[in-house]
């Protein structure tokens, strides 16, 4: 299982998850856009760290998260990295 993490965004303490671009169970490719978060009038795209199946969404749309926080999990496909 690989975590989907909000990366450091530079002095930003909190972002709002505005969209999940996939549902739990969907296949995603490594580097594919999986979610969008917003802060400071900026949409920041969160990409899948590995290829696999979106296993869990831990922070749903409309909720806030901090950089470093795990917002979802991907069940890694063999050779998905």
């Amino acid at each position: 299982m690989v975590d989907i993490v909000i990366p450091p965004l530079g002095e930003v303490e909190e972002v709002r998850v505005v969209r999940w671009l996939h549902e739990v169970g969907d296949e995603v490719q490594a580097g594919e856009a999986v979610a969008e978060v917003e802060c400071e009038k900026t949409t920041f795209v969160i990409e899948a760290p590995v290829g696999g199946r979106l296993f869990a969404i831990l922070v749903p749309e409309g909720r806030v998260a901090a950089p470093g926080e795990v917002i979802g999990k991907i069940a890694e496909r063999a050779g998905g990295r």
């Binding site: 530079g10 930003v12 400071e40």
Partner: peptide, 9 residues
């Protein structure tokens, strides 16, 4: 430049 949303804004 900087990997910082705040810096860019």
């Amino acid at each position: 430049w900087q990997r910082s949303i705040k810096w860019y804004i």
